[in-house]
Design a protein around this nucleic acid. Structure first.
Length: 618
RNA sequence: GCCGAUGUGGUGAAAUGGUAAACACAGCGGACUUAAAAUCCGCUGGGAGGCAACUCCCUUGCCGGUUCGAGUCCGGCCAUCGGCACCA
């Protein structure tokens, strides 16, 4: 896939695949059964000195001894009051927790170890319980330090980096190495020990290798009117889908679709609609916006198909093409890197596995356009009052100027601040283009300019035009719209300076301009067509093919070559393009300024880059 | 902390390892105008010297390296922004 690495990495991090093992620790009170933990480091199981379970773990009550009941209750209350942010970010390093009063048995060596409750373990990941190895985990180490829990080193680094001055291991040590203090496993490299310990515990029914994912659910319902209603009804406390013949299910027409002010979603106001039958009621939640954003690109291929989400032929035509991704180019903000762009891939993958689409991935090439900031350089937001409304810009400067400015601001991927002055700048550029073709009389009436004539462009204008065709064509492919526009400005400035405006060349220029400023370009083409029907596009510029440039028109007879002495610019001269390296070198060495800076010393080396420069090293 | 991106004029920015600052904005000067706006033309990185045309030196976050030549490549640092941390 041709996606930015940063987006791929964000998705990888979001999915958070991690290989490890689930291990069973028998509880000392055998009536309670086992405590299951997830760990990526089964090789450190001999270094476990305590267990931690999340405050929400279902075994908390059973594990809490009468003596600890009060402390545990207080801690759970305190943990529940914290937001996720407080639990993870703000509390970083500062560990809290409380002992349950109970013990578990290490399946590797039969040791009795205390079970704690701490909110650095979250219920939503893994099993909500961990085996804590303070010698080889920073969080466990911080916790052990705070509560004076023993630290047992079981990994010895192979390299010096893990050790401090006296040759002892710096703890916590989370790198690679060999096992120590681990009974029969001592001496094994850690990777090998991971597999062996997991396999041995599995053989005794005390664990198994597993893969865990950090990926979380994304809520698929909203309490609002605008959104696809679910084709689900409820009857006797059970839900079931409505028959296929009733699809598609459309939202009921409502005059008042505002929130109810109660926990009931707005659809509850459609009382007739809600009562599906004497005994069944419809689901009142609606789907979120991402229900549509996950597959709209498929529907766009065949939007009027009433039989299928997308017709097979249309899907193959638009989405096929031999590459793994269907959509050729998808431009969107980084803010969609993990949610929209990840879930759209999931949906597409399901459809692919079911054989309904022809590519495994939805989007072949992804470009993240940069966020546009407010004029103050801050993120646009209502509270900051720096929001720019595009409707206002369109009203004042026109849609072409808005479009053009957005492209002219800078590189597509870059974050950049809005500037009204910048909009005026491109607006002025468009006005200059307008005046290449049109002129105004004393009454303020615009008509076709008399300077516009059916004559061939002179050499200089031809060169400017063909350079523009070439550069804009290349820049569009690279999505470098800002530099394409600056080249069009250069070209326009060249035409502005000419006494007579060659109409044919201007029409060609308008073809280049039209993807950027379609309204203006089409209007000017229509104006020109009225007088020069053979020069202008017959219908629309947008029907025309992209103009070809003539490489011969770009070549000049002479080029400027700069002369350097020891890498510093000292002189320049115009030399014929056809000049050989030897000829250019001769001209350079003959230059009075070059000789002056050579200070009579012989040239040690002369580098000649034809058409560019000569560097004399003395 | 970890991962990633970005550092160039007063501002947005440009530059296949080859004239740093194209194109625009802002500013300054001029033309047109009774005047203003609009438009057109010119100047506009910093410093020094010269009446002047001009000349020299410095300049792409900082330090070092590679190279005839570095904004660009390599190494190290610093700063800012984004993600890890559930709006779609």
């Amino acid at each position: 896939m041709d996606w930015p690495d940063s987006t791929k990495r964000m998705q990888e991090a979001w999915i958070g695949r991690s290989e490890g093992a689930e291990l069973l620790f028998a509880l000392e009170n055998s009536a309670l059964g086992d405590l299951k933990v997830f760990t990526t480091r089964p090789d450190t199981v001999f270094g476990v000195t305590f267990m931690v379970i999340a405050p929400e773990h279902p075994l908390v009550d059973a594990l809490t001894t009468p003596a600890q009941r009060e402390a545990v209750a207080a801690y759970r209350k305190q943990a529940a009051a914290k937001s996720d942010l407080e639990r993870t970010d703000l509390a970083k390093g500062e560990k809290t927790g409380v002992w349950t009063g109970s013990f578990a048995i290490n399946p590797a060596n039969g040791q009795k170890i205390p079970v704690w409750i701490a909110d650095y373990v979250i219920m939503g990941y893994g099993t909500g319980a961990i085996m804590a190895v303070p010698a080889h985990d920073e969080r466990d180490y911080a916790f052990a330090q705070k509560f004076n829990i023993p630290v047992i080193q079981v990994i010895e680094p192979d390299h010096a980096e893990g050790r401090n001055g006296h040759g002892t291991t710096k703890l916590p040590y989370t790198g690679d190495g060999r096992l120590v203090h681990s009974n029969g496993y001592s001496g094994l490299p850690w990777e090998e020990a991971k597999k062996k310990i997991t396999a041995d515990l599995a053989a005794r029914g005390r664990g198994q290798a597993t893969i865990n994912y950090k990926l979380r659910d994304w809520l698929f319902s909203r309490q609002r009117y605008w959104g696809e209603p679910f084709p689900i009804v409820w009857e006797n406390g059970q839900h079931r889908s409505i028959p296929e013949s009733e699809l598609p299910l459309l939202p009921p027409t409502l005059e008042d679709f505002k929130p109810t002010g109660t926990p009931e979603p707005p659809l509850s106001k459609a009382t007739d609609w809600v009562q599906y039958s004497a005994t069944a009621k419809r689901e009142l939640n609606t789907m979120p916006q991402w229900a549509g954003s996950c597959w709209y690109y498929l529907r766009y291929c065949d939007a009027r198909n009433s039989e299928r989400f997308v017709g097979e032929a249309a899907e193959k035509y638009w989405m096929g093409g031999g590459k793994p991704g269907g959509v050729d180019l998808y431009v969107g903000g980084t803010e969609h890197a993990v949610l929209h762009l990840l879930y759209a891939r999931f949906w597409h993958k399901v459809l692919f596995d079911l054989g309904y689409v022809s590519t495994p991935e939805p989007f072949q090439r992804l470009v993240n356009q940069g966020l546009i900031l407010g004029e103050d350089g801050q993120k646009m937001s209502k509270s900051r009052g720096n929001v720019v409304n595009p409707d206002d810009v369109v009203r004042e400067y026109g849609a072409d100027a808005l479009r053009l400015y957005e492209m002219f601001m800078g590189p597509l991927e870059q974050v950049k601040p809005w500037s009204m002055k910048g909009v005026e700048g491109v607006y002025r550029f468009l006005a200059r283009v307008w005046r290449l073709v049109m002129e105004v009389d004393d009454e303020g009436v615009w008509s076709l300019s008399k300077a516009l004539q059916d004559v061939p462009a002179n050499k200089q204008l031809t060169k400017a035009l063909h350079e523009t065709i070439k550069k804009c064509g290349e820049d569009i492919e690279k999505l470098s719209f800002n530099t394409a526009i600056s080249q069009m400005m250069v070209c326009t400035n060249a035409f502005t300076g000419a006494e007579v405006k060659p109409a044919g060349a201007i029409v060609t220029f308008l073809k280049v301009l039209s993807p950027f400023a379609p309204h203006l370009a089409e209007e000017l083409n229509a104006q020109i067509r009225a007088k020069f029907p053979n020069l202008a596009a017959k219908r629309f510029l947008s029907d025309e093919t992209w103009p070809a440039y003539d490489p011969a028109a770009l070549i000049e007879d002479e080029v400027e070559v700069v002369f350097q002495v020891n890498g510093k610019l000292r002189d320049k001269a115009r030399v014929p393009v056809a000049a050989t390296k030897e000829e250019i070198e001769k001209i350079a060495l003959a230059s009075a300024r070059v000789q002056e800076f050579m200070e009579g010393k012989p040239a040690k080396k002369v580098i000649v880059v034809p058409g560019k420069l000569v560097n004399v090293v003395v």
